[in-house]
């Protein structure tokens, strides 16, 4: 464990809690892509299966349970409690355009052709593209609530910190997880455009509205 990974996990947890707080306080999930949240729940469900038969550390166990719980609560809020505020018309990204390539790639590029590894690989590739429906929705509506931009900022920051963690682990323990690293780079690249808007607009107190 290193500081980049701890900060990354905390940034991820903060993002998830910001999203829940936004929905809880405003009693609305306007501007939130339910499809992205479904993909994140799928990422956690396929990656954290080892929760039941591999014990890594108490921290690892607790964080996995928190992520799983929060992601399902988020989905329950969007499609259950606050479904009247979910703007389905703007959440139109075709998930099959993500799931089919990700499943295909998981079968092609993996460390071992066994169910747990295929599921882990699927979850890594899926996480890289899971935010696309959300970014697509913002481009559809042309703007996003400020609290939503903070959610996206910490969500993007988490994997960027993981990149630093992998550099650190490579130099200190010759750790090199090629699938996670390449996928993490792609995932972070998808946020670059948003990061630019966030830093040049939101941090200057303006609302995030796309030109």
């Amino acid at each position: 464990m290193n500081v980049f990974r701890i900060l990354g996990d905390l940034s991820h947890l903060l993002a998830i809690l910001i999203l829940l707080a936004k929905m809880w306080r405003s009693k609305s999930c306007a501007g939130i892509s339910g499809k992205s949240q479904v993909l994140f729940a799928l990422v956690f469900s396929t990656r954290y299966l080892d929760l039941f038969f591999v014990f890594i550390s108490l921290y690892n166990l607790v964080m996995k349970v928190i992520y799983l719980l929060c992601s399902y609560i988020t989905i329950y809020m969007i499609y259950g409690k606050l479904r009247k505020t979910y703007d389905r018309e703007n959440d139109t990204f075709r998930l099959e355009f993500l799931l089919i390539p990700v499943i295909g790639l998981s079968f092609l590029e993996n460390y071992d052709f066994i169910p747990t590894e295929l599921l882990w690989t699927f979850s890594i590739y899926l996480e890289a593209v899971a935010i696309l429906p959300q970014l697509f929705m913002i481009s559809n509506t042309g703007e996003a609530e400020t609290i939503t931009t903070h959610y996206l900022f910490f969500l993007g920051l988490y994997r960027a910190l993981y990149l630093a963690n992998w550099i650190w682990r490579y130099h200190t323990e010759k750790f090199y997880d090629q699938i996670a690293i390449i996928s993490g780079v792609v995932q972070t690249i998808f946020y670059c455009d948003f990061f630019y808007l966030y830093i040049t607009k939101v941090l200057k107190g303006k609302k995030l509205s796309l030109p």
């Binding site: 990974r5 996990d9 991820h12 990656r47 080892d50 591999v54 890594i56 550390s57 690892n60 964080m63 996995k64 992520y67 460390y111 071992d112 066994i114 747990t116 590894e117 882990w120 993981y162 963690n165 750790f175 090199y176 997880d177 090629q178 996670a180």
Partner: peptide, 10 residues
């Protein structure tokens, strides 16, 4: 490369 089933990161 980490072997199968040895993924210690979240």
């Amino acid at each position: 490369e980490p072997g199968a089933g040895k993924h210690d990161e979240l």
